[in-house]
Design a protein around this nucleic acid. Structure first.
Lengths: 213, 213
DNA sequence: GCCACAAAGAGAGCAGTGCTCTTGCTTTTC
DNA sequence: GAAAAGCAAGAGCACTGCTCTCTTTGTGGC
């Protein structure tokens, strides 16, 4: 039942965005709106469920795309293009997880696990490349943020230097920005035909910043 | 009067986000909700007015920051940091213009003018650097998107090559992504203290991609 | 001074929303 | 078979965007 509600809710998400109507979902299911509250304590809880599912679906798509691809750069590009493909297929789910936060909505801790799948995948790509000695040396970073990056590295990226972790995060952020820019209409009247090509161009730049090849 | 409504609406924007209540705004002004409709035909029209104002304020802040700064890289960094500063000061206005689009809302053509101020400013920085011969040569781009970029260049960036225009747009997109990531909570548990430093690190990377120095 | 007209606001009302509470029905469990 | 638990329905509250009609207010022309 919960699954059925989520399926219909996802359909409504595609037409109404984040302010989908719980009542309309209930109507589509042929039940009273109050009955839905047996499965989800509130509209926000429904949204949370959809958010977690979206993160998971995106993470799965990215991991699947990376499977079996050899070469650091190719793996990174495969991940980035898979993320873009998923976002183009599910624009409203993308908006839900990487768009502006829903007003008054506070993401519960359950979401941070699924939320990190993609960035962890990218971290793994970079770490493997680094540990295999395929990343050229770069001058170390200094400053407070470099220490924070080093702390992150210690947790997720083995012995990779702060600069590399920073470049990886930068690539992830750039990727999210590029997808959002495309979906949210920032590219209109600029690049309209070959957006995939332009996206790949940007992602190659991001990879070069990290020293991937 | 319209100005007064917008001011109160902006205050509500800060607490309720994009789904601010026209009735609540009217209440705050001590007038009936129907009276507001004399000044704005609909809630969407109010949002449009706020969007245009936000684009203009951001554009003005960016242009002001660039004034008098010498050096291509420094100008670019000044613009990027000014954009970030403005976004941190007005997170809900940022979400309004660069976050996920409001469901069912179609941005009218009036918005595209103000929307382009920042990217045009960046284009100007890059163009000047190129025309003064301060951008090292890079291999030309090929592909459909390269043609589109060349068309954009012809309009806004003089004789700059497609790769340079692409890198400039890439930097703009990266900047938007970095600001959004910070505002929308993607950086939580990663870089928490010195986000400004990390932002600048990314923007220096974006500048290098375009050949700015 | 007075009338006429237009602008500005008030108020009621419609259909819709999230959510709660009470009531009833059905299925399981003892 | 009776008690208990799970599930759904319905009414209702306070809220929303928006429309309609009505009333007040201010101003220009004579």
């Amino acid at each position: 039942m919960t699954e059925e509600i989520k399926t219909v809710a996802r359909r409504h998400l595609a037409s109404d965005g984040a302010n989908l109507s719980l009542r309309a979902v209930a109507r589509d299911l042929g039940m009273a709106s109050s009955a839905v509250y047996r499965y989800f304590a509130s509209r926000d809880e429904l949204l949370t469920a959809l958010i977690i599912d979206a993160y998971d679906a995106l993470g799965a798509a990215a991991e699947h795309a990376a499977e079996g691809v050899r070469g650091d750069l190719d793996r990174w590009l495969a991940v980035a293009l898979a993320v873009r493909d998923w976002a183009l297929a599910e624009p409203h789910q993308w908006a839900l997880i990487y768009g502006s936060p829903v007003p008054g909505y506070q993401a519960p801790p359950d979401t941070i696990g699924p939320a990190t799948r993609v960035i962890l995948l990218i971290a793994a790509i970079v770490r493997e490349a680094y540990e295999a000695g395929r990343i050229p040396d770069q001058p170390p970073l200094t400053g407070r943020y470099a220490e924070e990056l080093a702390a992150v590295a210690e947790q997720f990226a083995g012995r990779a230097p702060a600069r590399l972790v920073g470049a990886a995060m930068s690539g992830f952020i750039h990727m999210c920005g590029a997808v959002s820019a495309e979906l949210f209409g920032q590219l209109t009247n600029g690049v309209d035909e070959d957006r995939r090509g332009f996206f790949e161009f940007q992602m190659r730049g991001a990879a070069a910043f990290a020293g991937l090849s």
